[in-house]
Amino acid sequence: MSNKKKPLLQVRKLKQHFDISGKRTLRAVDGVSFDIYPGETLGLVGESGCGKSTTIRTIARLYKPTSGSVIFEGKDLANLNKRELIASRREMQIVFQDPYESLSPRITVGNIIAEPLTIFRNRKLIDIDKAGIDRKVAEVMERVGLRYSLRKRYPHEFSGGQRQRIGIARALAMDPKLILLDEPVSALDVSIQAQVLNLLSDLQEERGLSYLFVAHDLAVVRYTCHRVAVMYLGQIMEMCEASRLYENPLHPYTESLLSAVPVPDPEIERSRSRIILEGDLPSPTVKIFGCPFYSRCPRKMDKCLDNKPKLIEMEAGHKVACFLHEK
């Protein structure tokens, strides 16, 4: 479907390495490439420490990437100076995981939502007057299901689900094309989680938004995303359309990850065969020459230790980095 359109965001060979304690280097993101098309949701999944959140933060240029490019609407964000960066970030907004820590406790909700608009107005990057900002705040608050009359309240007066709506409203106020969602529902109770997921999918439909959706919950990702990329130790192991990934996973890591997710149905849950992975994630500070999944892979071969499998397109739109599938 998306092949005909031009991608909105192109991430190429993105690397984000952090120097820690002297000579060691933490390779949080280690050569990641993907595209996001207009109106599409790309899911980025993986376990803690796989680099999914760092990828989002690097795309938003909260960190300067070690190498690689992030091309958003034709401009490479990796090389822009501060002023250019701020201007080009207008159409790319971010919603964080923790609705308690990502909203300033000392600012009213109305001002939190208005703040990005105010900053752009002060820098003369958008043409909007104060009344216009108020109108915008009212519009996005109503849209996410918060009464405008609540604008003078502070974040602590809201529940977790409502706070996440505030975060979404703040992102929407800029009329973005792309919203980076960093675990947007993982801090919420299930009944509230469903409300927020439905809101996000309605907004996407109305406004043609693109999402980069980072999550560890594979069930949420299946429900939300059009395409999914599975990350492990800073690299993409498999990437394809969501339904395909869940029906026909090719990478042994994807397979075991999917089999580990519990299904809320006792009869299915008890009869499923489960691939239990041994051990834990290796340290991301150790340079790995072969496949990053080697140490835990139930189907490893000798050559996986020293040779790194490339992310190769197996079938149309289905990429996998594994020697089992290399011809």
């Binding site: 529940s159 509230i192 429900y223 999917l258």
Partner: peptide, 22 residues
């Protein structure tokens, strides 16, 4: 509660059923 949980073993084509309110 059961209807509002997305499932990894099923393609969900319609909206999740959410429990409204707090």
């Amino acid at each position: 509660l059961i209807a509002s949980v997305p499932r990894v073993d099923m393609d969900v084509t319609e909206r999740l059923i959410s429990i409204e309110g707090q």
